[in-house]
Design a protein around this nucleic acid. Structure first.
Lengths: 135, 135
DNA sequence: TATTGTTATACTCTATAACTATA
DNA sequence: TATAGTTATAGAGTATAACAATA
């Protein structure tokens, strides 16, 4: 648990610094990261980021003001707004991931077989949470 | 990188919820987590948490006000203050770690050999950052 | 009635800049 | 001169409670 704590602090610090290089906060970067997989409603975003729905309003407001995301009305439920990554937003998160030097260097220390093992273990340990697949 | 992002978000969410159950913010919890390894100066804490030194003042202020940490003058350098975990603080971080149910459940899915492999890989990937060992 | 998203509020986190004390 | 820590400030993140629109 101690080792996990240290490892994740290293990853999180790396991500925070990389996001700052694009003038984004960690929360804004995490939001783009989630949306990289596809559009998500405000409530799904809040659940995934483990924060209250009311926070997402402000975070998405700032991202939208900078043209990195776009709110779209859901066709199936008029209460819902789906948040979509713009081309600019996609570029931003890709740049951030490419600048996570400590993490990328760390991964490059593993050969292909080790990397596969690592990913498989990560998946088994962390991929049992209720994955929100919201409309 | 996508998988890392998802995995670490899961861990971070788990930690945040567990810390909240002790009425602590994520930053306060991370600070206790660092101090669990031993005392650290304000500047070492800031470096480890990847934040500005001025932030640590407020975070440690609040933790100290609740009796979870203690500031002690360094014997070797009168500018330095070492932050020490109190017995209460130690209890708090141990409780938090014991409440990280998603992560603990995830780890319990691995047998002993797999767990060793996982830890070894984590160490190789993430343990090359300049580890601050400050006085 | 319940849910989605927003607003208002209060507190915490965060970086920058300026400061004091010490090295 | 440089470094450790604090203070002041402004912007961002955070949860709670109350609200409008929709289901």
């Amino acid at each position: 648990m101690e080792l996990l704590s240290v490892s994740l602090a290293a990853y999180y610090g790396d991500f925070t610094v990389a996001a700052a290089s694009e003038h984004l906060t960690a929360s804004q970067g995490k939001t783009l990261s989630v949306l990289r997989r596809g559009p998500a409603s405000m409530s799904v975003l809040a659940t995934t980021l483990t924060c209250d729905a009311s926070n997402m309003t402000g975070i998405v407001d700032r991202l939208e003001k900078r043209g990195l995301v776009r709110r779209e009305p859901s066709p199936s439920d008029r209460r819902v707004k789906n948040v979509v990554l713009t081309a600019e937003g996609e570029r931003a998160i890709d740049v951030i991931r490419g600048r996570m030097h400590h993490t990328l260097d760390g991964l490059s220390r593993l050969d292909e077989r080790e990397r596969d093992t690592f990913y498989a273990l990560l998946e088994r340990v962390f991929t049992s949470r209720p994955a929100p697949d919201g409309a």
